[in-house]
Design a protein around this nucleic acid. Structure first.
Lengths: 180, 180
DNA sequence: TGCCTTTGACTTTCTTTGACTTTCATTATA
DNA sequence: TATAATGAAAGTCAAAGAAAGTCAAAGGCA
């Protein structure tokens, strides 16, 4: 018998598929649809929509609150490389090690120097100075993963837009703004 | 959707933009336009138009009273705007507050959406999840500042390169490709 | 038996509302 | 003319509302 969590997972994935890689909905509404308590949604998001799997999850509390789940566009050239790194990252990272990863990305033409610099600024010792060493290296890993997935997400969208535009041009059709 | 506060925020920003960086209006009239109680305007001003975000809000009570909202830093000078933020930021930031800062940058064309997204990924709750709430907000401030400063550094370098290239062109000299 | 799942009571974060207070300009009054 | 009354603002603050988050206990299943 299908576990509830599996049903929720499938539902979310369907919605993501239908909606161009991104869902925004209230946790409560999602819970209503499958008749479960809201906290179960949280559980599913935490266990099945992780960075490693290429998802970003955000939320906002209070009136008008929501949860948002976004997924990278798989199958791009870059994405395999970056996701491979994301998946292999599971140990705490020193700044030095993180720098090496970033340098590699630049050397292989995956990231521009600017992009790498920005990421470096987020995970350098100075930025994380308020933290003791222990959680510092842990959170460094987490931040790096988050940024890499985000990068991929926007990168994928951009190429998708570019493709669509090329198609339109080929068809000689006129294009209209389709991003809100 | 349509959180009232968001509508009010957008409305005020539009008015500021149209009127060259400053609006003067009665709180009551603003409230009437969006059909809310006047104190909600106060709430929006307090949360979205603070000094740190680059605004100066003044008001006068009594008959003929008004509120005035003004951008502190002129819109054209991107680096001044970012520096203002870096300098005035020193309180711990919730993700929600950080998002407001980033959206402000995007609204004024200081960061592209992608750049803001990338920064957002570095300071979102999901990325900082390994941390307990207390140090989390503190380190968020620190990371954001670090990224903004780095952004400025590279931004400066880039405009310096652009300038140099212009100079070279003017001299008719040929230029070396030194940046992607 | 040990790991997932499921549940629900309780907490925290944001937003909206409204009753009450303070301040100011204008007008009326002594 | 000096003061008092009036009305028109904005300010304050706490309560109610609307979400999501947390966490530990209970339930299943390999």
């Amino acid at each position: 018998m299908a576990r509830l969590s599996d049903v929720i997972e499938a539902l979310i994935k369907d919605m993501i598929e239908e909606q161009d890689g991104r869902v925004e909905i209230t946790r409560g509404e999602l819970a209503d649809r499958v008749n479960c308590v809201p906290s179960q949604i949280t559980y599913v998001l935490e266990t099945r929509f992780t960075h490693d799997l290429g998802y970003l999850v955000q939320s906002r509390r209070g009136g008008g609150g929501w949860i948002r789940i976004e997924r990278i566009v798989p199958g791009e050239d870059k994405s395999a490389y970056i996701m491979h790194t994301v998946n292999s990252l599971d140990q705490p990272l020193t700044q030095h090690m993180a720098d090496i990863y970033l340098r590699n990305f630049v050397d292989y033409g995956i990231l521009t120097e600017r992009e790498a610099n920005l990421m470096q600024a987020a995970i350098c010792d100075q930025a994380l100075a308020p933290l003791p060493r222990r959680p510092r290296s842990e959170v460094r890993t987490s931040i790096l993963k988050s940024m890499l997935v985000r990068y991929l997400l926007d990168y994928g969208r951009e190429s998708a837009v570019a493709e669509r535009e090329t198609e339109n041009k080929e068809k000689g059709g006129k294009q209209k703004e389709n991003r809100k």
